[in-house]
Amino acid sequence: MTAPLSAPLEISFDYTRSLGPVLAKFMTALADRRILGSRGSDGRVHVPPAEFDPVSFAPPAELIEVGPEGTVLTWSWTDHPVDGQPLDRPFAWALIRLDGADTGMLHAVDGGSAGQMRTGMRVRPRWAAQTSGQITDIECFEPATQPARQSAAEPAAAAAGQAVAAGQAVAGQVADGAADGAEPVTMIITPVRLGYQHTASTEESRYLRALQDGKIIGQRCPACQKVYVPPRGACPTDGVPTTTDVELPDHGIVTTFCVVNVPFQGQRVATPYVAASILLDGADIAFQHLILGCAPDEVRMGMRVRAVWRPPEDWGTTSENIDHFEPTGEPDAPYESYAHHL
């Protein structure tokens, strides 16, 4: 059996995170190359600060400056960093108890090699060349015993460098939390980019490969005998895969539709467009496609339509081989003939 089709899918968004009063002070201080912690009602100093006291559940009464040096409580060594991590060469992750704190803060240590790392070693932050009020303002920590090292990214290069590309903070209008006249940070932007391999089901792959040959293949459920297009890994009412191939014509009716006038991020079809539920002749379920070839306000429920295929040389294993559907000009189907498909 031929393997199902698969292709990469990237999920990517720059999230805008508002910080609230406690984290805003922490980030604002980072921009100023200072690290704050919160003193808990039990006296313990949390770094980063706890937004709500673990014992009293109230916001912390005070934030105090800690560090900048600290002690490694535990560490692990990474030979192969993954995207987005603070360093792109081998480094250590560590829980670091900053001087004056009672908790460990997770960050990277540019330790050279695993052999040079030790629990109990003293470290200090290496600040990014440009700080903006986010956790990556601390580029990493470094052994406190070695000579201070310049940030990897020179200021001039930093604008295009990883430290800045990894995120940025936004100064806002909250007055509280400003330190030394620095503009308070109220938001951070956190890019989240994840790569996945999307896989179509065996049944859908069969449909997509048929599309590449200019054919539309549905499948009949062995239990309810309904014809599904695309075929399904499980008939939704019977929980068994659809099995028997049924070649379907490339024409049918519009059961219902909407006219999309609203633009949005990631949209790939120009507005306005008609997204329609199209019931192919011989199928028992409609699928979504685009209607062109007439003005949007001429599209009707029950209108007969046929596929307009892209040139065969452009065909691939995708529903986009059918560029759109267009009216055939035949009389509309009576409402009763498709009412049970709505």
């Binding site: 995170r17 603070p86 990894a166 956190t190």
Partner: peptide, 11 residues
């Protein structure tokens, strides 16, 4: 934590 930890992508 989405503010002070996840932006470092600790695996």
């Amino acid at each position: 934590d989405p503010y002070v930890v996840a932006p470092l992508w600790p695996d």
